[in-house]
Design a protein around this nucleic acid. Structure first.
Lengths: 153, 153
DNA sequence: AATCTACATGATAAAATTTATCAATAGTGA
DNA sequence: TCACTATTGATAAATTTTATCATGTAGATT
């Protein structure tokens, strides 16, 4: 994993559909050499996946929330069970297990407020592992999926 | 935007490198027809972009934080100015403007704690728009970029 | 110093995929 | 029924990805 790889990764975070030829030109490398690096980055798992980014509202999910969850206990077995349980919910599109004033940050999408209310009832209120949670309604996703810079500042 | 488009979008969120032929087969459509739909979805902006997903730690950013920020004032001009200012920071890879107990949720990456401390000094403490903020240290990104389901539950 | 090995590179060619062209089909409203 | 529009499928051309092979460079060994 050298500087060239980092540049490739940065490029692919901006546009995963750029052709190998374009990337190769950008970083001054031959096409096959660039191709092999990209292939290795994919195979090794450094590139987790390549995916389309779509605004939830454009797929019929106009509401987006950030949930700050506090759990009852910190025991890892319980936490892991809880995480694998809730991560099955398709409405939860991102979930971060954190330490600080809360234990979990969830990004949840919903078709409407009623559906969101149902979600909280079934997934959170019913669950004994949840002590409480706060809902932040997303008004604007003001910066989305910024590319991770190749250099540390 | 019909059901077929939604299925295509779901597919592309799982794997943006699937060939048109694969997608077409999956949803029972000819290759050219499928191709044209994908092209329109891209052109119309429904597909915002296609990008590689990479864990920050694999690019030399081992630390990840969620910041819960409270702003001094709600005036939209001030808020917008603040947002466009901080969104320039490459360490901020996602930023949600929300309503509730906080005004802003930021995902920030850092090479180490010292760099993170510097970041908060320069970007947050120095800024008059910031009333205060809480830091949640990410221990695990337990669900990442879940695909947005094509149907509303 | 010479040589060997491991590894990444570039040139080229083959395979696969994307994209354009065109004729045919299905659905709409007059 | 008859145009009109929009979408489709078949085919072919253009582009891109991928494989093959020979070359070159750096580090280790004799």
């Amino acid at each position: 994993m050298d500087n060239i790889d980092l540049k490739i990764l940065h490029q692919l975070q901006t546009d995963a559909r750029a052709s190998i030829a374009e990337i190769a030109a950008q970083i001054g490398l031959s096409e096959p050499a660039c191709y092999r690096r990209v292939r290795e980055l994919r195979k090794s798992g450094v590139i987790e996946k390549e995916m389309a980014i779509i605004k939830p509202k454009n797929m019929g999910w106009p509401l987006s929330m950030m949930l700050l969850v506090e759990l009852e206990r910190d025991h890892s077995t319980i936490v892991n069970a809880f995480l694998s349980r809730i991560n099955k919910q398709p409405e939860i599109i991102d979930s971060w297990f954190v330490t600080g004033d809360y234990d979990l940050v969830l990004q949840v999408i919903a078709a409407d407020m009623e559906a969101f209310d149902q979600f909280t009832q079934q997934v959170l209120h019913k669950d004994n592992s949840v002590k409480n949670f706060k809902t932040l309604v997303v008004m604007r996703h003001s910066k989305a999926h910024g590319p991770i810079p190749p250099d540390k500042k």
